[in-house]
């Protein structure tokens, strides 16, 4: 039991989208759905211009509006502070999608192959088995990997090592030290959701 959180160092992030690919490979999300994504912004004036990349996914908020909006209790928080969705309870009403300020929840409408009109390939058949059509899905902090003592796929595969993951309740963990000692910020703080994903400013 802990309180899992993530710190993303935007100075280290090169926007390579390895985290996006890692997430897709690990969770077999269908075309059009990416639990992890990179938002980009052009900053500065010519010739001093640079691309700013902002990795975004579910923030596993302490005061999660999606959890409150869910009429069936399908969205819930597990013992480690991770917001999860119990697909068998989800009615696909999408109120959680509009309640989330970060727009990181997705409705799986149908199983679509990446190679459509070809039928689903064996990888897709195996991967889609963990998702239920007509229900909402989102980043789980790779809860299935955490159970096996591994880190989330996006953290594991980040070539710039820009992502840090750990227990925010453990004062000795990297993430809790960073949150305490460095100038971290949370996305859309004014929404009052208290995300468990922190960013180190670029």
């Amino acid at each position: 039991m802990g309180l899992y959180g993530m710190v993303i160092d935007l100075k280290k992030c090169i926007g390579c989208e390895a985290c996006v690919i890692a997430c897709k490979m690990e969770n077999a999300t269908p075309p059009g759905i990416s639990w992890c994504r990179i938002l980009r912004e052009e900053r500065g004036t010519f010739p001093h211009v640079r691309i700013f990349s902002l990795p975004a996914a579910c923030n596993h908020c302490a005061d999660a509006p999606c959890e409150k909006a869910c009429p069936t209790g399908a969205t819930y928080r597990n013992g480690d502070g991770i917001i999860l969705i119990e697909s068998s309870k989800c009615i696909g009403c999408r109120t959680c999608m509009t309640a989330c300020p970060y727009n990181v929840r997705y409705l799986m409408k149908k199983e679509v192959s990446y190679f459509s009109p070809q039928p689903l390939n064996p990888y897709e058949i195996m991967g889609y088995a963990q998702h239920e059509t007509g229900t909402v899905q989102k980043c789980t902090f790779c809860a299935h990997r955490l159970e096996e003592g591994m880190k989330p796929a996006c953290v594991e595969l980040c070539p710039a090592e820009a992502r840090y993951f750990g227990d925010l309740d453990d004062p000795e963990s990297d993430v809790s030290k960073m949150v305490k000692e460095r100038h971290v910020y949370q996305l859309l703080q004014e929404m009052g959701t208290d995300p468990h994903v922190y960013y180190l400013s670029s």
């Binding site: 409150k68 009429p71 069936t72 309870k89 989800c90 009615i91 009403c93 109120t95 059509t133 909402v136």
Partner: peptide, 25 residues
């Protein structure tokens, strides 16, 4: 029709304490 799982809509009664959809149903 809007719901992804229309046959489960009966479950929407469950959380009137926090969900407006639940209260509405």
């Amino acid at each position: 029709i809007e719901a992804g799982h229309p046959l489960r809509v009966w479950r929407a009664f469950a959380y009137p304490k926090t969900s407006w959809l639940s209260r509405g149903v």
